[in-house]
């Protein structure tokens, strides 16, 4: 056992190099209501941390203390905050800090602070490129982690002019969706890449982009029709580009009916049919078709929409009965 390992077993109260510090206990009264029953190790570290915050010390040993405290409780935001300020005050190597974060982020994937600290470091280091690989590693552990995805989106936004950083993004997200077509975080990321960040050079031909996205989405719906992520994305494409939903009428219709056992395999990129074994009719398709009818606005169409909503309310999507009734009311009111 080397000295470093041995020292980690010692409480701060037992370490000679901390003997000049008077630890500060948390509560003056001995019996606060609703106490947390801390471990001796945690109590010791936080007693010393409070003393350091009070004295305002910035030193190497503060980095050691905050690291140990963070390992005991990675959600201790004050320890992170104090650590960040100390790193700056000491002009410490941020690269070394980032390497430490590589270990801690995977360990404590679900805490806000590991990800935010990383943002602070990368903002100063301006080294976004290796982050992409790191994020992919984290996504292999948890493919829907909210912090990990927001971090990737922050990175791409913050370095929005870095073409090298952005180069492989569409291919990356294509693969993630390919791995799990129901991963909504991935669909959201696709929207971020294609529409959310503005027009990148090389993608000025918006008609081509829209066509590509529609084909991609329809194919994914064809493979797994009851996937709300893909339907929401389809709506997202049309809404963002102010295109009418009726562009998709021919595509949507087969999904609103029971599966036709006599479907022949045809390759139609614009209107891929439901795959064999698909569970139909699909609620999202019925809803989509009803929206098309509502938008058309004339009485005949409104009534067709109402029939579709009724079928959702009473048969296919009964948990949302009240919502479908609300849609019927809205449509009938605007029609009169």
């Amino acid at each position: 056992m080397n000295t470093e390992q041995k020292q980690e077993k010692l409480l701060f109260a037992e370490r000679p190099e901390w003997s000049d510090v008077d630890p500060i206990p948390q509560y003056e009264t001995s019996t606060p209501i609703a106490p947390i029953l801390y471990t001796p190790q945690y109590k010791d570290a936080t007693d010393y941390f409070r003393a350091i915050v009070k004295s305002g010390e910035r030193s190497e040993r503060v980095l050691q203390l905050t690291e140990e405290l963070i390992r005991l409780n990675p959600a201790h935001y004050t320890a992170w905050q104090y650590r960040y300020e100390t790193l700056l005050a000491l002009s410490s190597s941020l690269q070394t800090e980032l390497e430490l974060m590589n270990e801690l982020a995977i360990k404590y994937l679900k805490t806000y602070q590991v990800w935010h600290h990383r943002r602070l470091l990368i903002t100063l280091l301006r080294t976004p490129q290796p982050e992409l690989q790191f994020i992919e590693t984290c996504l292999r552990v948890d493919s829907k982690n909210y912090h990990t995805w927001s971090y990737r989106q922050w990175l791409l936004s913050h370095f929005v002019d870095d073409d090298d950083l952005w180069r492989g993004e569409l291919e990356f997200i294509e693969n993630v969706i390919g791995d799990d077509v129901r991963n909504n975080s991935a669909w959201h990321h696709r929207y971020f890449v294609v529409f959310g960040c503005g027009v990148r050079s090389g993608s000025e031909d918006r008609a081509r982009i829209v066509r590509r996205e529609l084909i991609f989405t329809k194919q994914n719906i064809s493979l797994a029709p009851n996937n709300p992520s893909a339907w929401n994305y389809l709506r997202g494409i049309l809404d963002y580009n102010r295109l009418p939903y009726s562009l998709c009428t021919r595509f949507v219709k087969p999904y609103t009916l029971p599966l036709d056992p006599n479907t022949v395999d045809i390759v139609d990129l614009e209107n891929p049919p439901p795959s064999r074994g698909a569970e139909l009719p699909c609620v999202y398709a019925i809803e989509f078709l009803a929206d098309i009818h509502e938008k058309a606005g004339d009485k005949d169409n409104i009534l067709k929409g109402v029939d579709l909503w009724k079928s959702l309310a009473n048969e296919h999507d009964t948990i949302r009965k009240k919502y479908w009734e609300h849609r019927i009311r809205e449509a009938l009111q605007s029609a009169t």
Binding site: I33, A34, P35, I36, L37, Y38, T39, Y42, T46, L72, N73, P74, A75, H76, Y77, T78
Partner: peptide, 16 residues
């Protein structure tokens, strides 16, 4: 929880 206190696994909520 209020009277006896929170077990040590609530340590992660020390900043909450």
């Amino acid at each position: 929880n209020m009277m006896q206190g929170f077990p040590a696994r609530y340590l992660s909520q020390d900043a909450s």
